[in-house]
Design a protein around this nucleic acid. Sequence first.
DNA 1: GACAAATGACTACATCTGTAATATTTTATC
DNA 2: GATAAAATATTACAGATGTAGTCATTTGTC
Lengths: 126, 126
Amino acid sequence: MKKELPRIADSEWRVMQILWEHGPLTANDIVNALSGEVKWKPRTIKTLISRLVKKGAVKVIQGGYRYQYSAAVDESACIRSETRSFVQRVYKGTMTPALATFLEDADLSAQEINDLQEILDKKKGE
Amino acid sequence: MKKELPRIADSEWRVMQILWEHGPLTANDIVNALSGEVKWKPRTIKTLISRLVKKGAVKVIQGGYRYQYSAAVDESACIRSETRSFVQRVYKGTMTPALATFLEDADLSAQEINDLQEILDKKKGE
DNA sequence: GACAAATGACTACATCTGTAATATTTTATC
DNA sequence: GATAAAATATTACAGATGTAGTCATTTGTC
């Protein structure tokens, strides 16, 4: 029973990432976590949270004191879905040229290159 | 003198891709090229073209007969820019996890895997 | 308990997008 | 040249997004 992933807008990603990384948080925690990273007014962040709640991407926990918010959708699932639609749009769905471009552009350490090669080796085995 | 790239919306990408692939085209050529791929009414496609012209992503060529349209921005530049902002947003700017996800998700032929490995090998040499 | 401060709810508003319809201007045809 | 057909331009309109402000309510403080 996979649930439909709500569409997460660009700015909203910042909020989701905070929530995915640090469990449930109050609105203020989120504002604090984001301050320094972004230039939004606290109000703006509150609005983003509300919209995410309305979309079902974030759920509200009625803790005694103040609301706590936590992600209601799975991070990996969102990342994969977003990645798929990105590749679809920009690379017409053909992964390989996309990957080639990425790989060529990326500034990778030897270690990272090895990790990636390992992934490829594993795929070859399949 | 690198020009600012206009933001190209999702639907607009389809039009740009047609123009990048097949040189200058009339509005009708674009509509024909897209029919089958998308379900948009010709009007809709015309609108997308107009918006792209207004944004400066497409330029109009006054050929004697009818307008011809051609891309006014560089394809690779757009792809790179879009990729950068995507990786920034979804992967917080860190390429390697992005690549790992791509590689794991991608359905690659043995040949493609080899090609990618070659790219990695070459990078390792740098 | 009264009042200020913090929190959350509701409202705002311009721009962008998706998705076209209608109106006007060219061009082709008779 | 009048008219139809085709192309282009103008207008529409709802929902999403970026970016908040204001109003109402809850809570902490004295």
